[in-house]
Design a protein around this nucleic acid. Sequence first.
DNA 1: GCGACAG
DNA 2: ATCTTGTCGC
Length: 239
Amino acid sequence: MRDDPKDISHFYLGVKDLFEFPRDPKEAIELQKKICGFVITEDYCNIEKIRLIGGIDVAYKGRGAKEGCAVALIWDRLTGETVEAVYVEESINFPYIPGLLSFRELPIAIKAFDKLSLKADLWMIDGAGIAHPRRLGIAAHFGVVLDLPAIGVAKSRLIGSHLPVPRTKGSWVPLRQNGEVIGHVLRTRSDVRPLYVSPGHKVSLLQSANLVLACCSRYRLPEPTRLAHQLVTAKVRSN
DNA sequence: GCGACAG
DNA sequence: ATCTTGTCGC
């Protein structure tokens, strides 16, 4: 159990609400409504100073298996090297329900996060940030709960609509819902399906896209997420 | 009622 | 996410 509330969200919600993961979908939705009000979509640090970026990915053993595996790692943006990586396993009970992904993967993601000894300046999470029905995708939930800057990097769309994205790397178009911009559809590689990037917490819409693009070299996914995915996949299929 | 639907 | 081989292209 945690006992180190540091900001407004922790002060008003308390560790009980923040680290609670209901089994009941109805309760999960109510909790999202309660937490979403604390998401911050403004930059909380100089982009220039962001050097260590964290990445987390979850994998499952078998088809309907309940065993989940997760890798959390910290990638150095300047050297392009992974400075630390940890692996954890845990049974996963909550089912996959569009809109409630965090209640399935956040528990094990936090378990992996806690195992790290180093601290990242920012986190990139597979899935949506505020580009979510209640503006609390897994990346936003992660950010508020841990009080850390986070960005949602989804490989496909959950909600929102957008115009076609130019086919060249670096191009992007806003992702919107009812006129409100909730993220960006970013082309991280020419002629390759774009990514759906949205702020998770303490990062703006513009910087979210800029940072993800800054972490992409020759692959579709940004390095932190790509490397984490590569590691869990290797781990899960070897055991 | 009928589709859509992160991982 | 997961079940799966080869294959087309830069």
